[in-house]
Nucleic acid binder design. Structure first.
Lengths: 230, 230
DNA sequence: GTCTATAGGCTGATAGAC
DNA sequence: GTCTATCAGCCTATAGAC
């Protein structure tokens, strides 16, 4: 269910066009606006204007504002879950991890709205039921990656769920806050970190963090006991 | 500027009480509701009801809904920035990192609303100007921690900003999504990861990730060349 | 499928009595 | 400081013409 976020593409009043173009324009406008301002801060009038479409069409095509939101959200989650399947096809877990990060880096460009959409939804009460299957698929990917790495002797044993949250949290946060950083950078002096640099940093931290050697905490505690740790 | 989120504490109509109690009740209600539903989804009527206070008092004491929101946000950021100062007083960078995580673990209990509040704000366009100083203070803490660790020979050299985003993103995401997980756990079977376990996982990953040894990527690429890493 | 016009509800703020 | 009453504005949804 991939939805290229079609540019506004205004129509002259009364003109009858391809109905799927209307749907696509609305999905694109929804992705942009819901991600920027959050569900409640966006009005159907905003959405219609951005899509270059009459606001009554939101109810006609999606059954209302909430229906449009759900459709936008679901298409985003579906695409991520779909693209993450390449992780499983990698030669080994280490390559799989690399592909995992690659998918997120790609998303920066193809669906730059998604991270904020995702984060807002994650923080909200009650995740939209329609996206639960995709969410489980994504969590399954990281879980199998962690387990596979351990089986292959490439990763130490870690809790797959904690592994998942730390990766997804860091990635989601970085990409969702990129617009905020860009705006901040315009006012105060601020070196803008690139997505590429962040991904590289996180991959490096993760690979080192997963390397199957004894814990540095344990190592240090037995090596030198100098106390004073609270 | 610590604000114990006072329990609702209803008053009988017309009764004159301590004015600061009203302010505290409103701040507590704001922390809870804004964090749960986001700024736009909360009405002044919701806030007043939860605080057990007349809705006109929001304008009187805070100049309006937005003013209350800003006050809530600022008190949260101020408290985090304040408590993070113990990081600098640690014996070495490793102990400082441990304290850093300890502060976040504490926050789970003392200000469980804050992570969601923080994440929502971070994703939104235009961070509230009032919190910028505190935000810079927090970023300064992680930056100095990374630099100190490198000086002391405990950490490899990493970009302090990237280090900051990966830590704060992972922590913020985990804690902000805890209510969502709790609700999900009530419906589908789901082992709930504890804050303690997550913090431990992240600290372990971070310490290993920062250990001053050669990159496992470089190591692996020279050790065994089996290709297929798309 | 698209558009206009409008209904009906809720929102945030405040004037003015106490 | 607190409360009641009220207002103007915006919101989403829809009936009905085209």
């Amino acid at each position: 269910m991939s939805t290229n976020l079609a540019p506004p593409q205004r129509k002259k009043a009364g003109e009858k066009r391809d109905p799927t173009a209307t749907r696509r324009a609305l999905l694109g406008a929804g992705a942009r606006l819901f991600s920027e301002k959050g569900y409640d801060a966006v009005s159907v009038e905003d959405l219609a204007r951005r899509a270059g479409v009459n606001k009554a069409l939101i109810s006609y095509h999606f059954g209302g504002k909430r229906g449009l939101y759900t459709a936008v959200l679901e298409s985003g989650f579906a695409e991520v879950a779909d693209r993450l399947r390449v992780v499983e096809e990698a030669a080994d877990a280490r390559a799989g991890l690399h592909r995992f990060f690659g998918v997120f880096e790609d998303m920066t460009r193809r669906r730059s709205d998604f991270p904020a959409l995702f984060l807002r939804e994650a923080v909200s009460r009650g995740i939209e039921p329609a996206v639960v299957p995709h969410l489980l698929a994504i969590m399954g990917t990281t879980r199998r990656l962690a387990e596979r790495g351990h089986r292959e002797g490439l990763f130490r044993k870690v809790d797959p769920l904690l592994f998942h949250f730390s990766l997804v949290g860091a990635l989601g946060f970085f990409f969702a806050t990129e617009p905020a950083r860009r705006r901040a950078a315009a006012h105060v002096r601020f070196e803008m970190p690139t997505p590429r640099a962040f991904i590289h940093h996180l991959e490096e931290m993760t690979l080192r963090g997963l390397a199957p050697e004894p814990s540095p905490i344990a190592k240090q505690q037995s090596n030198k006991r100098k106390g004073a740790r609270t």
